[in-house]
Amino acid sequence: MATSNKSATADHDHDASRRDFLFVATAATAAVGGASAAWPFISSLNPAADTLALASTEVSLAGIEVGQAIKVMWRGKPVFVRRRTAEEIKEARAVDLKTLPDAGDARSPADDAKRVKAGKDEWLVLVGVCTHLGCIPQGSSTGEIRGDYKGWFCPCHGSHYDTSGRIRKGPAPKNLEVPPYEFVNNGTGLKIG
């Protein structure tokens, strides 16, 4: 610092640029180190190994009558498993997809045939979380309000879902999500996740 005022010889310029390079390199190295050091802290906020290990749930389908539904826990959220009646399925299939508020996406398609497993039309499996602000819609237990479309009704802000779990009326923007699942034990059990 003190030397930099003395003269501006070529030699000195060379020195100064080498010095500046050193400063920049050091600052850059320290910045890289600081950023890397932040990673373990951020990473630790993500789900831990034991949490991830619980990411799948198995339920038995025995005892669920046609027209009934159960709620099971999966990743800390409720999952609706509904055994639909033939009439409910018919209603769900009869809807013109173009009239639906949500056209659907890969995780939650609009077409009822794609919302269930082929040949297992009566089993509807949905993440039971309203796509509006995360409340749990009513309609799984007997006696709960099922809304205008006989599916589910979210009492928080009045969203109505149909018998395929698609949004039909109210503020919710999207259809209820279909979680990844498969039938196990010759179709008597369900593995979610």
Binding site: L22, F23, A25, T26, T29, A30, G33, S36
Partner: peptide
């Protein structure tokens, strides 16, 4: 290894 490099740079600075 990183800290050794950084220490070297800091010392040079």
């Amino acid at each position: 290894i990183f800290m050794l490099i950084l220490a070297g740079l800091m010392y040079a600075v």
